[in-house]
């Protein structure tokens, strides 16, 4: 299903609400390979929420989100959506980089170990190679 010529990131009519607080009301966005996109807005405007949705740290309420033409968090078969297993979501996240607002570095590790945590723990790379 991967579409090489399509947009890198595609968001169509993305909605997300926390309880009755609607944060994202129909976001449409396209980012092509090599493009740099900035999302600018006041605090509480939903920038981080949108980014978290792209990583499936938050589930969207309606609309579509795909990276490299691959739907985030769901499989689509015969017009029906199936939730992905945790392992599959984790596999998707591995190819999406993200830096948090407060960085959320792991304080019990060194700087190098922080960077290596992904490849070593998740992919089982050997430590020397990761360095």
């Amino acid at each position: 299903m991967t579409d090489q010529n399509g947009p890198k990131l595609l968001a169509e009519n993305v909605h997300k609400a926390y309880g009755r607080n609607e944060v994202l009301r129909g976001i449409d966005m396209q980012v092509r390979t090599g493009e740099v996109a900035c999302i600018i807005g006041p605090s509480g405007g939903g920038k981080s929420t949108f980014l978290r949705c792209i990583n499936h740290l938050e589930k969207i309420d309606s609309g579509r989100l795909s990276v490299d033409g691959e739907l985030i968090g769901y499989h689509q078969r015969g017009g029906k959506l199936y939730e992905m297993r945790d392992k599959e979501v984790a596999a998707q996240r591995r190819s999406i980089g993200m830096v948090f607002q407060r960085f959320n570095l792991f304080p019990h590790m060194t700087a190098a170990e922080n960077v290596m945590a992904g490849p070593v723990v998740v992919r089982g790379d050997n430590k020397k190679k990761a360095r």
Binding site: N55, R93, F100, N104, G118, V121, V122
Partner: peptide, 16 residues
């Protein structure tokens, strides 16, 4: 909580 989130974002499973 951010620690768990960051680890999830790197692609770690719940157990990892």
């Amino acid at each position: 909580e951010g620690q768990e989130e960051a680890a999830t974002a790197v692609g770690m499973s719940r157990l990892q």
